[in-house]
Amino acid sequence: MELSVQIRKKLRDFELDVAFETGSEVFALLGASGCGKSMTLRCIAGIETPDCGRIVLNGRTLYDSAQGICLKPQQRRVGYLFQNYALFPNMTVAENIRFAASGSREEQEKKVKENLVRFSLDELQDAYPAELSGGQQQRVAFARILVSPAELLLLDEPFSALDGYMKWQLEMELSEVLKSYDGAALLVSHDRGEVFRLADKAAVIHRGKMEPVHTKHGLFRQPDTLAATILTGCKNITQARRLDMHHIYAADWNMVLETEQEVPANVRYAGVRAHFLHRSREMEPNVFPMDVIRVIEDTFSYLIMVRRKGMQGRMICWEVPKEEWEPSVSAELFLRFPADEIMLMER
């Protein structure tokens, strides 16, 4: 299975410029609302037309501006799960699934029955979409694209309309579906946890520009850019400048920090995740005395907002499990910024 995408399309505020290749895996596009993620899927599906470029799926050219090729959506063998599920309101659950099924009448019926059971919809097969909950509608939409001859699944923020518990249940179902699926899947999301749990590889789209492709672990370990660092959930980011090969000045925190990785000449920002900071009992490199400015109680942890002792600047967030936080340490607190956890960004 191979998908190759290289397209450009002028949007209202910026140009969408996307290029990537993927195989039999889950490839995620992570980005803020309005950055061009969904438009990328719509262009691949044939719902929208790029201004120029090329899209090739398993050796079949779906779109090529130079050759004048632009297959219709129904010719592309692409299954698209829309945010609003796009079920036919005048069809029952079974009819919605059957509509997309390929093969003979017998084969279609077999696929419908298998997926009704698979998604716990057998008792709802005669119901209409308006009679279903959001989670039930989503299961019908999953079933419908899986009975089609799709070589590629496009999942456009598939859980955005669901509450926490239902989202988790359906995410687990989708995870099992994707494990047994022979083709590729593109997942669009602004939820970093969703991307980490479901995807094999990921890339950030920022104002239409696609940033470097990473494994999911690589993206969260070293995001490379400011946009990617923010989207992957880092709470502590500072402007930075290079002092030498392994030291930076963190301007917003008033600190000189040692780094394990070599500092690029054009470094502009540095970041460290809140849960990687550690309390220290002694002064050593990358350990600083802190003033506790504010303590925020989260569900299972405390977010301790601190600044370097006696100085002004941007607050730093230290995330601590509830059982480990001792309010008494606020009078004298030293925090270590691990050299191997400092992320450096050139843009």
Rank of each mutant, 00 (worst) to 15 (best):
S4C: 03
S4L: 07
K10G: 03
R12A: 14
D13M: 11
D13V: 02
T22Q: 15
E25Q: 12
A28I: 11
A28M: 05
S33A: 13
C35D: 00
I44S: 06
G46W: 14
N58L: 01
L62M: 10
Y63Q: 02
Q67F: 05
Q74E: 15
V78C: 01
N84C: 02
N84E: 14
F88C: 08
P89Y: 11
P89D: 06
N90P: 03
V93A: 08
E106W: 00
Q108C: 12
E109D: 15
V112P: 13
L121F: 09
L121A: 14
L121M: 08
A127M: 11
A127H: 09
A130N: 09
E131I: 00
R139S: 14
F142Q: 12
A143E: 13
P149F: 02
P149C: 08
L153C: 02
P158C: 07
F159I: 03
S160H: 11
L162T: 15
K167Y: 08
W168F: 04
V177C: 09
K179L: 06
F196L: 15
D200S: 09
A202E: 00
H206T: 03
E211T: 02
V213S: 01
T215N: 11
G218E: 08
F220H: 03
F220T: 06
T225M: 07
M255W: 08
V263S: 04
V267I: 12
G271E: 01
V272S: 09
H275C: 04
H275I: 10
S280H: 11
N286R: 09
E297R: 11
T299G: 13
M305A: 15
R308D: 04
G313P: 09
R314P: 04
C317H: 03
W318P: 03
A339V: 01
E341M: 09
M343P: 02
L344W: 08
